[in-house]
Design a protein around this nucleic acid. Structure first.
Length: 428
DNA sequence: TCTGGGGTCCTAGGACCC
DNA sequence: TCTGGGGTCCTAGGACCC
């Protein structure tokens, strides 16, 4: 059967989340910053119109913020994650056959639907998501994922389509004239490097790429590039990924709000990051046997002494215990820590990840099965308590309590949907 | 003063195996 | 003078995504 995909993408997602609970933000310029209030990661249309690019450091747009009274927010991931969940659950009402692709995007399978009605389905979805969650979305519908992405891009940038672009009921000629307006950089899978390469070879738009020579594309952009060209031509190469595989690598890292100098502070931070990573590891029922710890100074401060290093540890035995992982991480940190530097960032990576049902024990390492079982129960209990009473209700002492290095979030909105003390107040 | 965080896939090359 | 063929696994590096 011919496949059909709809890509539902939330418009300016983080900004839209802020607007749901603060109507005063409608029709005024709004932006959301990354961790540490560092870079711009979400912009309302008004901010986009001012020419502020995604990823711009906040301090570089200070003047524009003041001039245009841009409303600025720190990232409120608790709120965004909960709103995302609500949007996805709403989409699930239309079909259980969907892939949650990112915090603000999902592919829906329309295969088997009466495809003459695509446009109407799209409008219905848009209306319902807005009514139930307050989040505006755009929808692209096509025979392949890459084309659905392209249709979505067009829906988002041209008001005349009212948020839904359906390529399935378009002729090839109509599709061509649409994707001719799309910069090749806006094609899913074409990033900065490939854009440079393509443009220097006279491939400027999505349409140019569609008709490019596939052998050349394969040679220069690997098999992924070739698949992308096929998808633009309507031949589906990427399936709906309904059950995402467990992660092969888990990373937890963050920049510090203030430069960190003391080893003790660094240890606290690393222990906290291990704790986050181990939680993620256990939530997908896996063990890891490789741990990497890295620390680095602020690379933007050229006049300050620079140092960065990482330590790789192959664990004697795979584990998911925060206690075991923390011990290894701290001994790794000791090896690379050098006093006298101003550290800006630290992180922990877990690799060599396998399901906890397929664990390879070490022949030369005595196994204390009772202790193993006890640790497993302990971790389970900690996870349960933290789930019920909030993150960090129970943690290792090594993680510290002061966290003087924690990230800066000076413009944080409330956790309107997940915390009783932060509910929206309405004055009548 | 101030520059994010967390992932994926593909390829080439080396070590090693029979 | 002559030096196989066919694999797997691992790692590093480079591209991409949101």
């Amino acid at each position: 059967m011919n496949k059909a995909f709809a890509l539902v993408d939330c418009n300016n997602f983080y900004v839209s989340c802020e607007r749901v609970f603060n109507p005063r933000l409608k029709h005024v310029p709004v932006m959301v910053l990354s961790n540490n209030d560092g870079c711009v990661v979400a912009r309302s249309n008004e901010v986009k119109a001012l020419g502020i690019k995604m990823g711009t450091p906040a301090f570089k747009c200070k003047k524009l913020i003041k001039e245009h009274n841009i409303q600025v927010f720190s990232s409120n991931y608790t709120l965004y994650a909960d709103m995302s969940h609500r949007v996805m659950e709403t989409l699930r009402q239309f079909t259980p056959d969907l892939e949650i692709y990112s915090i603000d995007e999902a592919f829906l399978s329309f295969t088997g639907f009466d495809l003459r009605d695509c446009e109407r389905y799209g409008q219905e979805i848009r209306k319902t998501v807005y009514q139930w969650t307050g989040i505006p979305v755009s929808i692209g519908i096509a025979r392949t994922k890459v084309l659905a992405k392209a249709a979505n891009e067009i829906a988002k940038t041209h008001d005349k389509y009212f948020g839904v672009v359906d390529f399935i009921n378009c002729s090839a000629k109509e599709i061509d004239s649409c994707i001719e307006q799309l910069d090749v950089n806006d094609v899913w899978g074409v990033g900065q490097q490939y854009t440079k390469l393509l443009k220097s070879n006279n491939i400027y738009t999505a349409k140019d790429l569609k008709y490019a020579e596939t052998n050349w594309i394969r040679r220069r952009m690997t098999v992924m590039g070739e698949r992308c060209v096929y998808e633009l031509n309507g031949t589906s190469c990427f399936e709906l990924d309904r059950h995402p595989a467990p992660k092969k690598g888990i990373c937890s890292s963050k920049s510090f709000g203030v430069p960190v100098i003391s080893k003790n502070d660094l240890e606290e931070a690393v222990a906290s990051y291990v704790s986050r990573a181990a939680e993620k590891l256990r939530s997908q029922y896996s063990y890891a046997n490789v741990l990497i710890v890295f620390i680095t100074t602020n690379r933007f401060k050229r006049d300050e002494p620079q140092y960065s290093n990482s330590a790789y540890i192959r664990l004697k035995e795979p584990t998911s215990s925060t206690i075991d992982l923390t011990k290894s991480a701290l001994s790794a940190l000791s090896k690379i820590y050098r006093p006298g530097y101003k550290y800006k960032k630290a992180g922990v990576l877990l690799e060599g990840i396998h399901p906890d049902s397929q664990i390879q024990l070490n022949l030369f390492h005595s196994v204390n099965c009772v202790k193993k079982e006890q640790t497993k129960m302990l971790m389970k209990t900690i996870d349960k308590i933290n789930k019920k009473w909030g993150r960090d209700s129970l943690k290792l002492a090594t993680e510290g309590t002061k966290h003087s290095w924690k990230m800066r979030r000076t413009r944080l909105s409330r956790r309107y949907t997940t915390n009783w003390n932060e509910l929206l107040e309405v004055c009548v």
